[in-house]
C-alpha cells in the first residue's frame, strides 16, 4: 500500500493488522489445544484453553477501539476504509472461532475417553484441517493474497466431508453401543463446532479476497 502523508495513520493500520494476527494465532492454538485436551482427556489443558479465551476477547475490544479511533480521527477513504472495516469484521469472526474452541474444551470433562473410543480417531484430523484453514487464512490476510484465500475457501469442502463422515460414523457407533451415547453425542457437537470454524474461516477468506481485489470470490457451487 502507498504511504500516507500522516505517518501515524500508517502506524495505526499496521498495528490494527498486527492485533488481528495475534488474535488469529491465539485462535489457531486454541483449536489445537482443545482437541489435544479432548483426545487425551486432559481437563487441565482444557481449562487453560477456556482461560486463554479471555485474552481473545480483550484483543477484540482493542481492535474495536483502535478501528473506531482510526475512523473518527483519520476519516479513511476507499482502500483504507475497506482495510479498517475488514479488520473490524475479521476480529469479530476470529473471536467466534475462539468461542467454538472454548466450547470444545468445555466438553472435555463430560466425555469418557478410553483408549479404544473409536469415534475419537477422526476428530483430530478434522481439527487439524480446521486450524490449518485458520492459519492459511491469516497468512492470506498478511500477504493480501487472494489466491490463497480462494484455496482456503476450497478447503472448506474437505472439512464438510469430514463432518459428514464423522456424523455417519458416530450415528452408527451410537446404534451399536448405546452405553456411550452421551459421550458420542458430545462428540457430535465437537464435530459441529469444527465444521462451524471451517465456515468462519471461509468467511474471513471471503473478506480477505474482497479487501485484496475489491470483489467477492465467485460462488463455485
Amino acid at each position: 500500500m502507498a504511504e500516507h502523508t500522516v505517518k501515524a495513520f500508517d502506524e495505526d493500520i499496521t498495528r490494527l493488522r498486527g492485533l488481528i494476527g495475534e488474535m488469529g494465532g491465539l485462535a489457531e492454538v486454541a483449536i489445537e489445544q482443545a482437541l489435544d485436551a479432548l483426545v487425551r482427556g486432559d481437563t487441565e489443558l482444557a481449562e487453560k484453553v477456556v482461560a486463554r479465551d479471555k485474552k481473545l476477547d480483550e484483543l477484540e475490544a482493542q481492535v474495536d477501539k483502535l478501528a473506531v479511533r482510526v475512523i473518527a480521527l483519520r476519516a479513511p477513504m476507499a482502500g483504507d476504509l475497506r482495510e479498517v472495516i475488514a479488520a473490524l469484521k475479521i476480529a469479530g469472526v476470529v473471536e467466534r472461532i475462539g468461542d467454538y474452541s472454548k466450547n470444545i474444551a468445555r466438553r472435555v470433562g463430560s466425555i469418557e475417553v478410553s483408549e479404544k473410543f473409536e469415534p475419537l480417531t477422526l476428530l483430530p484430523a478434522m481439527g487439524e484441517l480446521a486450524s490449518e484453514m485458520v492459519h492459511d487464512v491469516l497468512t492470506a490476510y498478511a500477504a493480501r493474497d487472494a489466491n490463497l484465500a480462494l484455496e482456503v475457501i476450497a478447503t472448506d469442502d474437505k472439512v464438510d466431508a469430514f463432518y459428514n463422515s464423522i456424523f455417519r460414523n458416530l450415528v452408527t457407533y451410537m446404534v451399536e453401543n448405546p452405553a456411550t451415547i452421551s459421550s458420542a453425542a458430545q462428540l457430535l457437537f465437537v464435530a459441529r463446532n469444527l465444521e462451524r470454524i471451517g465456515d468462519h474461516a471461509t468467511n474471513v477468506a471471503e473478506m480477505v479476497h474482497y479487501a485484496a481485489t475489491g470483489e467477492y470470490p465467485p460462488d463455485d457451487d
Binding site: G18, L19, G25, V29, A142, R144, D145
Partner: peptide, 17 residues
Amino acid sequence: LGKHIVGQDPRLVFRQP
C-alpha cells in the same frame, strides 16, 4: 515467510502466542 512481510507488524507474521 513471503515478500510481503517487510513493513508489517511482526505479530501479523508470526502470530503464535
